[in-house]
Amino acid sequence: MTRLRIDLAYDGGGFFGWARQPELRTVQGTIEDALHKVLRVPADDADEPLRLTVAGRTDTGVHASHQVAHLDVSDDVLARCMGHMNVSVCEALARRLKAVLPTDIVIHRVSVAPDGFDARFSALERTYVYRVADRSSEVDPRLRGCVLRVDEALDIDVMNQAAAMTIGLHDFGSFATPNPGGTTIREVKTAYWRRIPAAPLVPDGLSMDEAYRTPSLESGLLVFTIVADAFARNMVRSLVGSCVKVGSGRKSLDWFAGKMAKPAREGSSGPIAPQGLTLEHVAYPADDQLASRAEAIRAVRTLP
């Protein structure tokens, strides 16, 4: 049996989230169906289920520019993807998946996972980015699927004061949907808002007529970046939605602070629309620390 690491990306707009669901198009279901096809394994084969474990389950409409999953597969089944290709078995599988997957999923790389690797539990941290076009910026129509348009002028300074409250180990029960038997305690390592400077795509050092200085697609957008060891369900979108309410003046910083101090799920701190959210990066420790990290993170956390 071999454990594979699969690095991938997807446009979440056409999927009902990551996790496989009956009769619905999901990222996991689409990739697993492709694996069964290229490895010639019947979908109901109990001995070779071909099930993916992912670093972070994204919700309906949420994107990933760098997602990580692992797959356990027997060596004889894996060898079926080789055919006449004179490449490694991992490269052969990657090529065959790319040939059958839809264009809204991209396989970056398939590799043999190091000993102790678990895509979910070995991860040190995940980085999510949420992109907003407020009244002070304009969204390029080509980005409409990954940027949320807000018809308000947002105060980035106030929003950063709210974001700073989230850094550290907290119970994010006001901003997350708990899983039965789980916890909403998470450690946020950094969280901040910034406005992307209006800048040309062409470097400033080049001598070029202004008419040919192609503008950067993201110029002027408000971008929220948050890094944490893990995220509870709807946590990032709820934090973004609450920051936007504070930035627009509809809610106060004291309100946000109260939500942080007393975790209680209710409607005013619910999730904002999904299309602005992208999983950008998943970080892992050195290979010799993968197993111990996975063991430690499985423990249910509590606050000091």
Rank of each mutant, 00 (worst) to 15 (best):
Pro263Gln: 14
Thr302Pro: 02
Gln161Met: 11
Asp151Val: 03
Cys90Arg: 02
Val89Glu: 12
Ala261His: 03
Phe16Ser: 14
Glu23His: 10
Ser136Asn: 14
Ser136Glu: 14
Thr103Ser: 14
Asp209Asn: 10
Thr278Lys: 03
Thr190Lys: 02
Leu97Val: 00
Ala228Gln: 01
Tyr284Ile: 04
Asn234Phe: 12
Ala163Arg: 04
Ser136His: 10
Pro285Glu: 11
Glu266Gln: 13
Asn179Leu: 15
Leu303Lys: 05
Val112Ala: 10
Arg293Asn: 08
Pro304Gln: 14
Arg120Ala: 11
Ala43Asn: 01
Pro178Asp: 13
Gly267Tyr: 01
Gly17Arg: 06
Leu39Arg: 01
Thr2Ser: 15
Val41Tyr: 03
Gly181His: 05
Lys251Tyr: 08
Thr214Gly: 00
Asp157Gly: 07
Thr183Met: 10
Leu222Glu: 04
Arg144Glu: 13
Leu97Phe: 04
Val38Gly: 03
Val246Met: 06
Arg109Glu: 15
Asp75Glu: 15
Leu201Asp: 15
Ala283Trp: 12
Ile156Leu: 15
Arg120Asn: 09
Cys146Pro: 00
Leu4Gln: 06
Gly258Leu: 01
Arg237Trp: 09
Pro114His: 00
Asp118Phe: 02
Glu187Tyr: 01
Val89Arg: 13
Asp72Phe: 03
Thr225Pro: 00
Leu303Ile: 05
Glu152Lys: 10
Ile185Asp: 09
Val89Pro: 00
Arg237Ile: 09
Ala211Trp: 05
Asp155Gln: 01
Asp151Ala: 14
Gly241Glu: 03
Tyr212Met: 12
Ala79Gly: 09
Val112Asn: 02
Ala133Val: 00
Ala296His: 10
Arg95Met: 14
Gln289Met: 13
Cys90Ile: 00
Arg149Ile: 04
Phe175Thr: 04
Arg96Ser: 12
Leu154Trp: 01
Gly12Thr: 08
Arg5Met: 14
Gln289Phe: 06
Val54Leu: 13
Gly220Leu: 09
Ala46Val: 11
Ala296Cys: 03
Ser269Val: 03
Phe15Asn: 06
Ala191Gly: 01
Ala19Arg: 11
Val89Gln: 11
Gly182Lys: 06
Gln161Asp: 14
Ala92Thr: 04
Ser238Asn: 06
Asp59Arg: 05
Glu125Gly: 10
Val236Asn: 06
Arg194Ala: 14
Arg213Met: 09
Met159Thr: 07
Ile107Ser: 11
Ser207Tyr: 02
Ala273Asp: 13
Ala211Pro: 00
Leu221Asn: 02
Leu52Trp: 02
Arg126Leu: 06
Ile297Asp: 09
Ala257Arg: 14
Val73Gly: 04
Thr166Phe: 07
Ala261Ile: 02
Arg20Ala: 14
Arg126Gly: 01
His36Trp: 05
Ala294Met: 07
Ile196His: 09
Glu32Cys: 05
Met165Val: 02
